[in-house]
Nucleic acid binder design. Structure first.
Lengths: 235, 235
DNA sequence: GTCGATCGACTGGTCCGACCACTTGACCAG
DNA sequence: CTGGTCAAGTGGTCGGACCAGTCGATCGAC
């Protein structure tokens, strides 16, 4: 048998998850007041502090809005929540399938990634270009191990995004990576075509290093687009 | 004189802000252990609960990682943090200028927005298309009031992003909008050219409604790119 | 001396019960 | 109708206690 880490979640974490799911699933509709903290504490059978921590985290991701004296109200996550809750949308959201979510992430990755490659070719400094080149060469040395390729792929792309000198892209990239791990492990078999295209990645690195912005943009789009079409079939 | 809301921030909010700034500014380096909660409470002169709430929020945005028994350690926000902290990077981050951050946001908006327009033209259902059309017509009726245009612009784009049926884009859009409000009010004078191009927005809406994906993509890119170049000059 | 178990100090996690600060709405006087 | 008062309810803070893990120093067996 395989040994996996024992499930060990803090009380406040469980409360957070429960409320989050209730909100994302629509059970608690936008505008609804959350039950009072004291009541939630009683209902969950935990201390009020635990509830407060959970609510604080919910507020941090803008799933609720608290106001002293007044009620804590459920926000409309479609209008307020940020990319960081995407992963947690998988099971809980209305009828949102994992496949759809994955497709969405891949699409965004393609849009952001190719523009980052363009900017990287345009304004990365020398060290950054060298890093991209080195990581691309590492990538080429790996072989056919899909998991290793996926890991190295993340590092290569991180270097490209860093080279783009665009913080927004960098932070989005972090979210996408984090969620890719959180959701279904981004079916690597669906990324086979992309990951195994070693020459394509080398070419991308060369274009970036040469400062060929349009070329890098196109090549990045070609690479990243592959996994999307691989995933299509319903849509 | 103008009356603005009195500044009123909760204790835990202040602690959160202080620690966040210390991390984003590099004062607390990645890997560093955070002082113990009890000590932070003493140093800030607040109760430990307040500290705990602040730390919980920091963990939620992945600026720190807590582990029972062990120390709470500072994460490398460049590798872990999500888009939601972007706004708060403005003053605190290393040497990150507001102008750069704004440019980054605009660039991302352009990349995401134009692809969203493409997808919206491709797979929005009828009601969604009708909404886009209606909002574009509203937009055209506003006139030269830049603030009103900016507000209507957000709604129009929200409809387009919704029509794209891509949740990742939707959530990113939320973050971008939220932060645009948080940072410098996105110098509207730098968006003048974009905002005042009413025919351009109407054309975009028509292309979306007609299902012309490439056309919508190009038109969106043209509109959104304008504010970036308007902001350039150093770069 | 090396290895391993033990133990204690320290850190985060939870709980209790109390009080403060604020909002809301009912009520009442003008 | 207006404005003020008041009580109830809600979030915010406090302190002090104890539980539950981690980590390193210590000490015994080999």
């Amino acid at each position: 048998m395989t040994y996996r880490p024992v499930r060990r979640e803090s009380v406040s974490g469980q409360v957070f998850a429960a409320l989050r799911d209730a909100i994302l699933s629509g059970e608690l509709a936008p505008g609804d007041p959350l039950p009072a903290e004291r009541e939630l504490a009683a209902r969950f059978g935990v201390n009020r502090q635990a509830v407060r921590e959970a609510v604080g985290r919910l507020a941090q991701v803008r799933l609720v809005r608290v106001s002293q004296g007044g009620n804590t109200r459920v926000e409309d996550w479609r209008r307020t929540a940020g990319l960081d809750i995407a992963a947690q949308l998988a099971g809980s959201a209305d009828r949102l399938a994992v496949a759809t979510l994955t497709r969405d992430m891949l699409e965004m990755r393609a849009a952001v990634g190719s523009d980052a490659a363009r900017l990287c070719a345009e304004r990365a400094d020398e060290p950054a270009r060298a890093t991209v080149r080195a990581l691309a060469e590492d990538y080429a040395r790996i072989g056919a191990d899909l998991d290793a390729l996926a890991a190295a792929n993340v590092e290569l792309w991180r270097a490209i995004v860093l080279g783009s000198r665009n913080v927004a892209y960098l932070l989005s990239f972090n979210s996408l990576v984090a969620h890719a791990l959180a959701i279904a492990p981004v079916p690597p078999q669906q990324r086979t075509a992309e990951l195994l295209d070693v020459p394509g990645h080398l070419r991308l690195a060369r274009l970036v290093e040469a400062g060929d912005a349009p070329g890098a943009y196109d090549q990045a789009g070609a690479l990243l687009g592959r996994s999307i079409t691989a995933l299509d079939g319903r849509s």
